[in-house]
Every structure is written in structure tokens, then in C-alpha cells.
Amino acid sequence: MKGMTVIVKTVSSWVKVLIFLFGIYIILFGHLTPGGGFAGGVILASSYVLLMLAFGRRFVEENLPSSVASKLDCLGAFLFAMVAILGLVFGGTLFVNFLYQEYLPGTPFELVSAGTIPLSNLAIGLKVGASLFLVIFALTVFRYDGSRKPGDSDESAGGTPATRE
């Protein structure tokens, strides 16, 4: 995969920022407007998939290695579990919305409101985005290696940090 033509590369390098910002907006305002962690995470993953399709696999591999992506994936899962356990510590039950009930009620219809729901949205968005990026990255890497001849596939896979993380 060497990437596409100059036109596609230029346009996607402009558009990628907008897509990434839109994903962050969808995640942060998930408790006020339609959207939320799931949709925003998939949008974040698709911005990197656009880069992967336009610039080739190596470019994305240098910017966001799969080891970093798997660490982000685990970080998202850890944050979501941490929100649950903090609810157990401060509120008495798992997943209780302790921030809204006691510490930081906020005003409704504002960005800082609803307690732990924005935090959970962030964690879910991080988790979904990183894991879907990892899956598509693994599919791309496999196709790259599978296009070689069957005899030398092991040697060619040795040089690239493939899916073993």
C-alpha cells in the first residue's frame, strides 16, 4: 500500500482534523445532544482509517503504532471500570452517579453537569475508537503480508511490528 494520488492526500490531510474534532465534540456533548461515546469513538477510529487508506499503512504506523493503540484501548476499559469502582467507594454501589448526587451537581443543560456521565462517555469513546482502529489495522497488516508468496511470509512478517502486541 503506497497510498493514493496527491489530490486524495491533500484533501484528506485537510479533512482529518475536522473529522477528529467532530468526534471529540460528539463525545463531549454526548449527554446534551445526540451522540455519545459509541458514535464518537467510531468517528475517531474512522479519521485514522481515512489516513490509512489515503497515505498507506506505514504513515499511520509511525503516527499511532499498534502498541500505543492497544494501550489506549486498555486505558479506556480501565477508566470505565474506575468510574464504576469510584461509585462503589464514594456512593456505596457500583456505577452510582456519585458526582451528580453529592459533589458536583452542576446545572442541567450545561457542559459540566450530569456527574460521571461525561467521564464514562470519554472512557467508552476511547475504548471503542482504539479497539476498532486495532481491528482494521490488523486486517490491513494481514492483507499486506498475505500478498507475498507463501514461502517467504515469515521473513517478511518478522521485519514489521505486526499484530503480536
Binding site: G30, T33, G36, N97, Y100, P105, A114, I117, N121
Partner: peptide
Amino acid sequence: TGAPNLVTSIYL
């Protein structure tokens, strides 16, 4: 829950 989006308030 303080979230006007009821779907979010249910699943989170």
C-alpha cells in the same frame, strides 16, 4: 441523572 439526553442517561 442530570443528562437531558435520555438515551445517554439510560445506558450510562
